[in-house]
Design a protein around this nucleic acid. Structure first.
Lengths: 320, 320
DNA sequence: CAACTGAATGTAACCGTTTACATCCGAAGC
DNA sequence: GCTTCGGATGTAAACGGTTACATTCAGTTG
């Protein structure tokens, strides 16, 4: 049976003749190698775990896509698990993957150093994706949320807007918090007083964007510009504004975040902050693969993916 | 070590005292069960394989979401693999999952009975998702593509349109073919002559929709209605029409397919055919789980998920 | 022709669990 | 005090492969 194993794995130790002989018999018997057994013996599963807070929306699917794309080229699979993870669930999810993956990509605000020490105790390969990363013991990739939001709001301020509202992302969300931080910093740097009345709540859904816009319209001195913390909310706001007969960008300027494919197809086309989400997944996966394949490298990497302003019609900067 | 195993698995054969004793020592030693070894011994991986043609676009991410949602409730994971599968790649992908999953969900037009017999030889649990399914030996779930397209085109015809164009989906795609079939049947039943000049090519992308619309506008006797085989193309067409100064729905009526979330937020809101994609994933996963958990049931199930017309402004049926 | 090669094949331990079966042990029955 | 009994624990054989090491077997050498 050693020879069979070697033949199947194309080892150079078997002659071409035996290899073919084995192949022929295997075919006749309908033999197929058992992946699980193989990885038990080799201690390599060629699988990476992907832990996501949820699978909803374009963002996550794009991330997964990027990950799978890079990973499958080198013969790896993705074992995905999406749960809105509170600490205990997250830990359980990690544990359940423990003998099935070579490493994990973790996207969860809930991940704490304590969990890591207790369940990952020591050198289990992990790359954090878009996490607050309280723990510098892990590699992590993030989006330039702060910078992107800052650029957007500065752009709106440069267009002459003095009262700029924000529709915030989901409470407790890392991206949301960073984008808010960028908004506030840009406001301050533009010499604009912070005003919590124009910091509307939201949760990244179209509906919450529409609601915030309606609330804004009811204000006595309503803002002349809105920065929505993602495109879905921006599009929701756009629909609400149109319904109320308020013209974008003439009466209210609007900017989003994420630059989803749809952004360029709404009317007016949505000014947004572009993030190459698929690339984020790719880079993260590549980093994890490097840890798995390459020699142990103690260096921890913290990488930030740029977010670039894309100016379209909804902010009013463009003619026609 | 048998006792440890029993303690970890909460077997009723160990006393509470030993169970706690084991737990304490496990904690001190940082012991965690090895999933791979466990599944080798039990011959259950609690994992299902999901084979997709690609991961691009809202459709696939929604399907995965539905699958993962149902599957995780019963403690299963998803091992996903997305490759544009030609026959050989598909077979390789299945083989590579063979000892790692309890069953697979397969979404691929390339799946043939021959592959199945060669690599699945016999009773490996499979559920086909939106496949042409040449092989009645498998359970399969599909979308009512034909019926949905038929309803849409009949609707347009009832609004008085005589020349109705279609922007087709990707060549070789099963959904695309079915939607085309529905379009043609509806045309015929409405007493409208088929005309290959108004059957435009497309590939499900926004850009291809825009191109088809531009080509249509250049025609001497241009159609008064367009049925795009998915919403992305419809939105692309919408953008092209607007650019050309052609009003929707006044000059050209437009309908899409899929009813993606964005459909209601474009202007005018897009008439479409609604399919609950997430539910498609859920149902498929539930079917596979039934095969895995329940007793072997020889009955093969072919299920079709309904597709329902959603009338919005873009078709011109609604006032204001 | 015996000893020495080195490539090809065979043997058996191991990967980390589960589980059928054997064993142990204390309480109850005689 | 010696069986009997049943519940808790221990033993060892799987599960299906990989791989270090031992062995075989030609084909050289001296």
């Amino acid at each position: 049976m050693a020879t069979v194993s070697r033949a199947v794995n194309e080892s150079s130790l078997v002659t071409a003749a035996t290899r073919q002989h084995v192949a022929a018999i295997a075919r006749r018997l309908g033999y197929m190698p058992h992946g699980g057994a193989r990885s038990l013996a080799t201690r390599r599963t060629h699988t990476i775990g992907v832990l996501l807070p949820d699978l909803y929306g374009e963002f996550f699917s794009e991330v997964i896509r990027g990950i799978d794309l890079t990973v499958r080229d080198v013969g790896y699979h993705c074992l995905v698990s999406s749960a809105r993870h509170n600490g205990a669930q997250l830990e359980a999810a990690i544990r359940s993957m423990l003998g099935r993956v070579d490493g994990v990509i973790l996207m969860s605000p809930e991940f704490t150093g304590e969990i890591s020490r207790r369940t990952l105790h020591g050198g289990f390969p992990v790359v954090l994706l878009n996490c607050p990363s309280p723990d510098p013991a892990f590699d992590s990739l993030t989006i330039a949320n702060y910078e992107g939001a800052y650029d957007m709001v500065r752009h709106l301020a440069q267009l002459g807007h003095r009262r700029i509202a924000i529709i915030q992302g989901a409470a407790g969300n890392f991206d949301a918090a960073e984008r808010l931080r960028g908004y506030r910093a840009a406001m301050r740097d533009a010499g604009l007083a912070p005003d919590s009345d124009v910091e509307f709540a939201g949760d990244f859904t179209e509906e919450s964007g529409a609601e915030a816009a309606r609330a804004m319209l009811a204000m006595p001195d309503r803002p002349t510009a809105i920065f929505a913390a993602n495109d879905c909310m921006a599009i929701g706001a756009l629909a609400a504004l149109r319904e109320a007969g308020v013209s974008v960008p003439d009466q209210v300027a609007l900017g989003g975040f994420d630059d989803i494919p749809m952004a360029r197809y709404v009317t007016p086309a949505l000014t947004s902050v572009h993030v190459d989400i698929s690339a984020l997944g790719e880079r993260t996966a590549a980093r994890l693969l490097a840890k798995l394949e390459g020699p142990a490298d103690a260096r921890r990497i913290r990488d930030t993916l740029p977010a670039t302003l894309v100016v379209r019609r909804s902010c009013g900067a463009l003619q026609n």
